[in-house]
Design a protein around this nucleic acid. Sequence first.
DNA 1: TGCGATCTCCGCCAAAGGGAGGAGGAAGGT
DNA 2: ACCTTCCTCCTCCCTTTGGCGGAGATCGCA
Lengths: 210, 210
Amino acid sequence: MTIRIVIADDHAVVRQGLKMFLLDDPEFVVVGEAQNGAEALKLAHELNPDVILMDLLMPVMDGITAIGRVRRECPDTEVIALTSVLEDASVVGAVRAGAIGYLLKDTQADELIRSIKAAANGQVQLSPQAAARLVREVRAPESPESLTEREIDVLRLLAQGKANKEIAQALVIGENTVKTHVSSILLKLGVQSRTQAALYARQIGLGPVD
Amino acid sequence: MTIRIVIADDHAVVRQGLKMFLLDDPEFVVVGEAQNGAEALKLAHELNPDVILMDLLMPVMDGITAIGRVRRECPDTEVIALTSVLEDASVVGAVRAGAIGYLLKDTQADELIRSIKAAANGQVQLSPQAAARLVREVRAPESPESLTEREIDVLRLLAQGKANKEIAQALVIGENTVKTHVSSILLKLGVQSRTQAALYARQIGLGPVD
DNA sequence: TGCGATCTCCGCCAAAGGGAGGAGGAAGGT
DNA sequence: ACCTTCCTCCTCCCTTTGGCGGAGATCGCA
């Protein structure tokens, strides 16, 4: 039984390196490569792969957004976040978005292979460091759980320093609607300004993955 | 004539991918691999390679520091910064430290090969994006060093989400004065809003004790 | 002495942000 | 069918932000 894999990373070098690693095991077939989150989502629909190895820092559509959509739209596809930086923010964000694994790019080939096989069977795979971050987060939950999906969309853009008008354009809704969402966010987070909301969002892992 | 290369990157995947790329051209020989800047410096001394491909984000000793030391201690070795993120700060830092090139990891194999050959001959190689950042920097230096002491005071409070009125009270100055400082900060940092300034400040380590 | 940078403050004004409240529609659970 | 939540958009109104020009005071340096 083969495991069909899609690699999503904007760097050709990384894609090449991953393919080399995966060639070691005949069980793996790389069925597609994506250079950004949007392409990854498209390939997920077309190819319905078993596993997507997803970088988090990508243009057009970032990895976390892509993970969320893949999980919602292609529930049979498991996603492993594969990133170079270990940051509390992205670990929590990726897992919350539905990633079954979070691995660092300095993972050794054999460990990577084991993790992909486990993920294909629905088993959670976290690097030890990532697991530690997650535990710390769960123990002191400061999640914007009460925020709705749309509010989180708005907050994510707000945390990039975007103005209401820009957020409206990005989400293809009216500026008034954005203001409504922002008001709700400020109320729910208990902060007094968008700047405070942005800082809070960064702290808990929303915003651009960096 | 062969070009002797050292690869410095903390991620095994990336090193593997780069080696695959370089195998395409018989002129290249990868004589060593380093997992951090300190190792790269050690290898530079021992092997005296023609070119080092240096990641900037590495543990133990970061790439920019390593570039500076390699250039000072092994002047025959040229260094190409090869990084995943395009950030004004690192472009300027790497070039200032003595990098002869600054390439992104999403560079295509053939372009990478051409760049390494050029670098071995002492020719500058910058990705178009990196070149643009450099030009912008030279034209309008936007380092936080250009901020005055008082402006940094204001920025620090701003990065805590404080409003102009609160900043004024904290610094015991008038609100109008705060507005003047904020305007200068926005201008110097090249950002469009206080929220962006706050995020930038956090990124460079300003803000509350952290 | 003059020059330049910095810090302080002022007023004016346009734009953006944010509070309060209402309202329609879609989706899902009872 | 009903209720709730959410998303969407609206109006009215006020505050905050930020751009612009101007200005006096201090300090240090050429």
